[in-house]
């Protein structure tokens, strides 16, 4: 005679929740436990046909558990017969029940959520499925059981959806984001300002006083420009370096050109942009963004801009 044991919740770290305890053949071992809270589960409620898998889409706290049973206690019908009264005792009414071919055969699994092996192994010629519901909508709970016999033993997977009755905390009405432009997906963000203004300041490409090289953060900040060039192979740009007004013009022209050349080199070497599409020049302190009156405005003036080149 097969012995039965009650499997208590094994995962002490899991938060307290309503979980239907299922008695399984002795020797059953939990192979998986996954909790999605909140989550969506499509409860199969009918036979799979090539056209569709009838499902009831449910929302709630989704708990997926699986167990492996000893091979000598893996008869799927015996397990199904033992689980049916347990479901009823827990208040569930059976919505749909099927066995391998009556489930719709091999393809049933495509419409069904099944954990990957070896947590759950399904022999497609020997499995049973039960879907059950407790309570009425909109606060119904669902429990489905998939039972199978595989070469390594029996497997049971239970998916339980518990309705979430408490309101999620800390809700607020978010500010409406600006509507995406017609080219929101599939194009780069820098193209529009470059075409509108003819130039863009390269955000995040910053230099200390007198510095001519790019740090890792500045190279990272070239992603939008490189992305725009990557997405628009016909576009060429002039990179223009700028300085603050500390020192003479000749020296600053040299420094500003070196800054533009550092950006050009990074675009070529790090991002693989074709050299022929990039020209580097320097404007010294001849075109400031702001009056050089304090530390912040001087820092803002030490920059590189990209200018759209339209002549062939």
């Amino acid at each position: 005679m097969t012995r039965w044991i009650l499997l208590a919740a094994l995962c002490a770290a899991a938060p307290a929740r309503a979980e239907t305890l299922l008695a399984l053949p002795a020797g059953a071992v939990e192979t998986a436990r996954d909790n999605r809270a909140p989550g969506i589960y499509r409860v199969p409620v009918g036979r799979f046909t090539p056209r569709a898998q009838p499902v009831q889409v449910t929302e709630g706290d989704v708990l997926i558990r699986a167990w492996r049973l000893p091979l000598d206690r893996s008869n799927t019908l015996a397990t199904a017969r033992a689980l049916r009264p347990q479901l009823k005792a827990a208040g569930f009414a059976i919505l749909f029940e099927c066995a391998d071919t009556t489930c719709g055969g091999f393809d049933f699994r495509y419409g069904t959520e099944v954990l990957p092996p070896p947590a759950m192994e399904v022999d497609l010629s020997d499995f049973r499925f039960i879907a059950a519901r407790r309570g009425g909508e909109p606060e119904a709970g669902y429990l489905t059981v998939l039972i199978s016999r595989a070469p390594r033993g029996g497997f049971v997977q239970a998916v339980e959806v518990t309705p979430i009755t408490t309101a999620p905390p800390d809700l607020e009405v978010p500010q409406t984001p600006p509507p995406p432009g017609p080219n929101a997906a599939g194009t780069s963000g820098l193209l529009a300002p470059l075409e509108r203004d003819g130039r863009v300041v390269l955000e995040g490409v910053t230099f200390a006083v007198g510095e001519e090289t790019l740090g890792p953060a500045a190279i990272d900040a070239l992603v939008p420009l490189a992305g725009m060039l990557d997405a628009n192979p016909e576009i060429r740009v002039l990179l223009v370096g700028h300085t603050d007004d500390e020192g003479g013009l000749d020296g600053n022209l040299v420094v500003s050109r070196a800054r533009a050349q550092a950006v050009r080199a990074a675009l070529i070497e790090t991002y693989g942009i074709a050299p022929g599409r990039l020209i580097a020049e320097g404007a010294g302190f001849m075109a400031p963004l702001a009056a050089n009156v304090d530390v912040a405005s001087r820092a803002a003036n030490r920059r590189v801009e990209a200018v759209l080149l339209t002549a062939q």
Binding site: A185, G186, T187, S188, A226, G227, L229, N232, T270, Y271
Partner: peptide
Amino acid sequence: NMPARALYDGLG
């Protein structure tokens, strides 16, 4: 992987 990041950024 900067070239790949540029590609993906350019695609939105």
